[in-house]
C-alpha cells in the first residue's frame, strides 16, 4: 500500500500547524515563544498557499508566500525590539506581567 501524498494531506498538515501555533499563543506567556507560535501560524498559511498554488497551477500563491515571509521578517524585527524594550522596563518577557493599563 503506497501512501499517496496529495493536496489534502498538505492542507491537513497546514491546519495542524495553524492549530499548534494558535494553541501556543493561547497557552504560553513568554513573549518570545508566543512570537514563535505566531510564526508557525504564518508558516501554516504559507504551506496552504503553496499547496493551493501548486494544485491550481497559479503563480500568485507562491508570490504571496514570499511576501508573507518578508512581512514576517519585518514583524520579527519590530517584535524583538518591543520585547527588548519590555525587558528593559520589567526585566521579564512574561506578557502577563504587563497589565498597568486595564479597565
Amino acid at each position: 500500500m503506497t501512501l499517496a501524498v496529495g493536496p489534502g494531506h498538505y492542507l491537513f498538515l497546514s491546519a495542524i500547524l495553524f492549530t499548534i501555533g494558535t494553541v501556543g499563543v493561547l497557552t504560553r506567556r513568554n513573549a518570545i515563544i508566543i512570537f514563535m507560535s505566531i510564526e508557525i501560524m504564518l508558516n501554516a498559511a504559507n504551506l496552504a498557499f503553496v499547496t493551493f498554488a501548486a494544485a491550481i497551477g497559479d503563480l500568485a500563491g507562491f508570490v504571496m508566500v514570499l511576501l508573507v515571509i518578508a512581512v514576517a521578517a519585518a514583524e520579527a524585527a519590530v517584535g524583538l525590539a518591543i520585547i527588548v524594550a519590555m525587558f528593559r522596563h520589567r526585566q521579564t518577557v512574561d506578557v502577563g506581567a504587563f497589565n498597568v493599563m486595564r479597565g
Binding site: 493561547l26 506578557v95 497589565n99 486595564r102
Partner: peptide, 17 residues
C-alpha cells in the same frame, strides 16, 4: 465590560480566540 478588560494579554488572546 471593563472587568473583562483585564489588561492581561493572555486573557485578550483568549477572548479573541
Amino acid at each position: 465590560a471593563s472587568r473583562w478588560e483585564t489588561g492581561y494579554v493572555p486573557g485578550y488572546v483568549l477572548v479573541f480566540f
